[in-house]
């Protein structure tokens, strides 16, 4: 009984939210231009499904391209930073400084360098999403139990052995956990860039629709973004469960 409710809860809440939204729009007679009701948004989604699909696809692939770059670069940098304390100490302030720059501010520079289009979107997605991957991988490596390290060193293991046998497998739950965060950030990056300087993508579509006062289409674009974001999050959450299920189960078990 509780299990079915547990499973249905996300749907119930989502549908409930939309129901309240719809009811509020009708009850208070809210102007479509201020806040379109869900039914109006769905209508717009159906009517404009072609441009939504086309631009949604552009956003999806630029996001995934930027995210892919972030994964390879973030993993490599994370391993490097987690490997040595010196590199960690040297790079950390630089990375913090870099991460605290609002990425919106970088987009104009990218446009000057690469022109308007998909490249700035890919790079913005990459820039905004690599940081959590680096930090998580480095944390996973840096928190090896000292006793485990002693056990291996007393067997004659070198640093590489310790990393391969303990450090990297141990960092994997952190890595896969960070992918969920990174993919949502990557969407933020690509859409920000599309909004500022682009001629395709959901961000571009929404800016255009906004300047034409087509509010239902703006919200339809938002909806498409939400769908893409949730779908990608689900993919990486499933991947995490599959790859590092031991981490979840071991923390649940009583034996610890």
């Amino acid at each position: 009984m509780t299990l079915t409710i547990d499973r249905l809860a996300p749907w119930i809440f989502t549908l409930g939210l939309f129901a309240i939204w719809e009811a509020a729009c009708r009850l208070f007679n809210i102007d479509q231009f201020i806040l379109p009701a869900p039914s109006v948004i769905v209508e717009a989604m159906v009517r404009y499904y072609k441009p939504l699909l086309r631009n949604g696809f552009v956003t999806l692939w630029t996001t995934l391209a930027g995210f892919g770059l972030a994964v390879s670069f973030g993993l490599a940098l994370g391993l490097l930073v987690g490997w040595s304390r010196t590199i960690y100490r040297g790079l950390y302030p630089v990375m913090i400084g870099f991460n605290s720059i609002p990425k919106v501010a970088v987009v104009p520079i990218l446009v000057v360098w690469f022109g308007i289009g998909e490249v700035p979107a890919i790079i913005t997605a990459f820039l905004i999403s690599f940081f959590p991957i680096v930090v998580n991988v480095a944390t996973g490596l840096a928190t090896i139990e000292p006793e485990m390290e002693d056990v291996l060193r007393a067997l004659g293991a070198n640093k590489l052995d310790i990393m391969l046998k303990v450090g990297i497998p141990r960092a994997m739950p952190y890595f896969f956990g960070s992918l969920k965060i990174a993919i949502t950030l990557a969407f933020v990056g690509s859409v920000v860039s599309e909004t500022i300087a682009s001629n395709a993508g959901l961000g571009f579509l929404m800016t255009q629709a906004g300047s034409n006062f087509q509010m239902p289409l703006v919200f339809a674009g938002l909806m498409a973004l939400a769908i893409e974001g949730i779908a990608m999050y689900a993919v990486f959450a499933a991947l995490e469960r599959r790859m590092t299920g031991w981490a979840v189960r071991s923390s649940q078990s009583a034996a610890g």
Binding site: E145, E147, M148, D150, V151, R153, A154, L155, G156, K165, V166, P169, R170, M172, T244, W246, A247, S250
Partner: peptide, 18 residues
């Protein structure tokens, strides 16, 4: 330097969970 021949065990079993 490290001995390379010693076996060690601690209070915590330190098993690798994966």
């Amino acid at each position: 330097g490290p001995l390379k021949i010693a076996g060690m065990a601690f209070q915590n079993a330190n098993m690798l969970p994966w």
